[in-house]
Amino acid sequence: MGTLFTVDDKVQIKKDIENKYRKVATTPKGQFRYPTGREALETLRYDSTILGTLPEEVVDSYCGTGNPFSIGKIEAGEIILDFGCGAGIDTIFAAKMTGDKGKVIGIDIVPDMLNRAKDNKDNLGITNIELKLSKGELLEFTSEYFDTIISNSVINLIPEKEIVLNEFYRCLKPGGKLLLVDQLFIGEEIKEHTARVKSWFQ
Results as ranks from 00 to 15, higher is better:
D16F: 11
E18D: 14
N19L: 14
N19I: 12
K20N: 12
R22V: 13
R22L: 12
K23A: 14
K23E: 15
T26I: 15
T27R: 08
P28T: 14
P28Q: 14
K29E: 15
Q31K: 15
Q31Y: 09
Q31P: 02
R33I: 13
R33D: 15
R33H: 14
P35D: 13
P35L: 08
T36E: 05
G37K: 10
R38W: 06
A40N: 11
T43M: 11
T43F: 09
L44A: 10
L44N: 10
L44T: 11
R45L: 13
D47V: 04
L51G: 12
L51I: 12
L51K: 10
G52N: 10
G52R: 11
G52E: 13
G52F: 14
G52H: 12
T53F: 00
T53V: 01
L54N: 01
L54P: 01
E56S: 11
E57H: 13
E57G: 06
E57C: 08
V58T: 06
D60T: 01
S61N: 10
Y62N: 04
C63K: 02
G64I: 04
G64K: 04
G64P: 06
N67W: 08
P68Q: 06
P68R: 09
S70T: 09
S70C: 02
S70Y: 08
G72K: 05
K73W: 08
I74G: 07
I74W: 12
E78F: 09
I80D: 02
I80R: 02
D82E: 03
D82R: 07
D82M: 03
D82L: 03
F83C: 08
F83N: 06
G84F: 08
C85P: 08
C85T: 15
C85W: 07
G86C: 04
A87H: 09
A87D: 10
G88W: 05
I89E: 07
I89Y: 04
I92E: 03
I92G: 06
I92D: 00
I92Y: 05
F93Q: 09
A94G: 03
T98D: 09
K101I: 01
K101A: 09
K101V: 07
K103A: 00
K103F: 01
V104M: 12
I105S: 01
I107L: 03
I107K: 05
D108M: 00
I109A: 00
I109M: 00
D112P: 01
L114E: 07
L114V: 11
R116D: 12
A117S: 08
K118A: 14
K118D: 14
K118Q: 15
K121V: 15
K121A: 14
N123W: 12
I126P: 08
T127N: 11
T127W: 06
N128G: 02
I129F: 07
E130G: 05
L131Q: 08
K132T: 07
K132V: 03
L133W: 06
L133Y: 05
